[in-house]
């Protein structure tokens, strides 16, 4: 298996997020099928090196996914409050 950094080497900068996203989505889909699209979108806003670290480290990925889920739930809760008011 090649190191994750080799994913990015031949890719133009505009395609790097796309390639990282495809791999990240596959991993997150196994954890949270219903939220994979949103969680992947959130994590892709991070630095490419952080995303690479997630692809290499399941523990790091899970911690960042948990963080993203918490942020997403907080955001959605605020949206509900906003709609009620």
């Amino acid at each position: 298996e090649s190191p994750a950094t080799s994913i990015l080497a031949p890719a133009p900068s505009g395609d790097q997020k796309q390639m990282l996203g495809e791999r990240l989505f596959c991993l997150i889909q196994t954890m949270l099928p219903s939220l994979a699209a949103k969680i992947t979108g959130m994590l892709l806003e991070l630095d490419n090196l952080d995303v690479l670290h997630m692809l290499e480290s399941p523990e790091f990925l899970r911690s960042k996914v948990d963080e993203a889920v918490a942020v997403l739930q907080d955001h959605e809760a605020k949206q509900v409050v906003h709609q009620v008011m």
């Binding site: 997020k17 796309q18 990240l24 949103k38 979108g41 892709l44 955001h75």
Partner: peptide, 26 residues
């Protein structure tokens, strides 16, 4: 804007070109 915050976060779908925040806040 309020409109874009409702659509946050941008969703990533395999095979669809990723535009990030630009996709929800043009």
């Amino acid at each position: 804007s309020n409109g874009s915050s409702i659509n946050w976060p941008p969703e990533f779908h395999p095979g669809v070109p990723w535009k990030g925040l630009q996709s929800i806040d043009p």
